[in-house]
Design a protein around this nucleic acid. Structure first.
Length: 358
DNA sequence: AACGGATGCAACCGCAGAACG
DNA sequence: CCGTTCTGCGGTTGCATCCGT
């Protein structure tokens, strides 16, 4: 293996840094700034390459580093951000003050991944990890849903991402019960995570099989006024969804009861879009998503836009939150919806948009 | 106590893109 | 423009430590 160009010019030391080397680097950088890293080792009196100095400073010596164990809140935030950003550790680390990309990456690989692994059966996870670590072909299907618990993981070929359903919140719980973790009461994200993590949605799988995940939070639905069951296997009891696996179109029934299971986000979105009163999104803009979703579900999207349908306020909040919390939402809700419909993003519906500031 | 596997993490590598001359 | 250098990033490695036997 060849070394970096700056390392070939002179004999450089490698491996762990000694306290003396650290002191030299700290003294130099705090006094003069790093400037051009390639000249730092010479000026600081270090027999290291500039790249090594930079890495040591950024990952270990910087005064603003937090160090120490990750808090459960930080862990939850990492899981959340990873579900959105994938392995873009530098981007994730920007949301965690005092943490480096290297630290976040190591934490993910050593701790979170294992905890998530404990949530699913081992052979399934193995295939998941293999798939996730490989680059999907360009022409692959938009989604590769894994044959585990389809509500637990979903893979997108757009960003090589692993998505988690709210069942992943048990990861957070596992961290909370871990005595290694030191809660950080000053973390301003505590409330955010506590309240919003359980609401993390997932993108739809390309499956029209009815499904549900008992861990999904309660998300109320309001049935269309005029709905008439159109197939023999649609069953309504007391105007409430009883069991999505019984062949129902769960988005057409409601409200759900606390004791009942809740459908996938795709079903939720379908229900919301069908009831959408066009307050914030035009039909043109939602068409890509509707057409995609309708390809998965046996209803006609075109015939479902009815202005007199009931729309619960929290339904619109839910959809609006999804739309506005997307990274691209500030420029174009159309592109955001397109991105969602093509599987590019998964987002926390109630995450404040400020969290996405670059 | 000794050993070996597992784990955590600092550090390195190669690559891509930006900056520079 | 174009070649070179620098910077930043993600993947990987290697070693110290931990832990179970």
């Amino acid at each position: 293996m060849g070394h970096h160009s700056c390392c070939n010019k002179q004999k450089v030391k490698r491996g762990l840094w000694s306290p003396e080397e650290d002191e030299k680097l700290i003294n130099y950088v705090t006094t003069y700034g790093h400037g051009c890293w390639s000249s730092v080792p010479r000026l600081a009196g270090l027999q290291r390459c500039g790249k090594s100095c930079r890495l040591r400073w950024i990952n270990y010596l910087r005064p603003d580093l937090k160090r120490g164990s990750f808090s459960p809140q930080e862990a939850a935030l990492i899981v959340e951000l990873h579900s959105i950003l994938g392995n873009r550790w530098a981007q994730i680390a920007k949301h965690l003050p005092g943490r480096t990309d290297n630290e976040v990456k190591n934490f993910w690989n050593s701790s979170i991944k294992k905890r998530l692994a404990s949530l699913v059966d081992v052979p399934a996870l193995a295939s998941l990890v293999d798939v996730h670590n490989s680059k999907p072909p360009e022409d692959a299907a938009d989604f590769v849903s894994l044959n585990v618990n389809p509500n637990t993981f979903i893979l997108s070929n757009q960003q090589d991402q692993l998505y988690f359903s709210p069942s992943a919140s048990s990861v957070l719980q596992s961290f909370s019960h871990d005595t290694d973790f030191k809660p950080n009461p000053s973390n301003e994200n505590v409330d955010l995570i506590h309240h919003h993590f359980p609401l993390t949605p997932m993108l739809p799988t390309l499956s029209n099989t009815a499904s549900f995940d008992p861990s999904w939070p309660l998300i109320p639905f309001v049935a269309p006024k005029h709905h008439v069951p159109n197939s023999s296997n649609e069953v309504v009891q007391d105007d409430k969804l009883v069991n999505p696996t019984a062949g129902l179109n769960p988005y057409e029934y409601g409200p759900l009861m606390a004791t009942q299971t809740v459908p996938k986000l795709s079903e939720i979105l379908q229900g919301n879009l069908c009831n959408m009163p066009l307050t914030s999104v035009s039909l043109e803009n939602i068409n890509p998503l509707v057409s995609r979703l309708s390809s998965c579900f046996p209803i006609s999207a075109g015939s479902s836009y009815s202005h007199d349908m009931h729309v619960a306020p929290n339904q619109m909040e839910f959809i609006d939150a999804i739309i506005t919390s997307m990274p691209l939402s500030s420029s174009s809700s159309s592109s955001s919806l397109s991105a969602l419909s093509s599987g590019q993003y998964i987002t926390n519906p109630t995450l404040p948009s400020s969290s996405w500031d670059p």
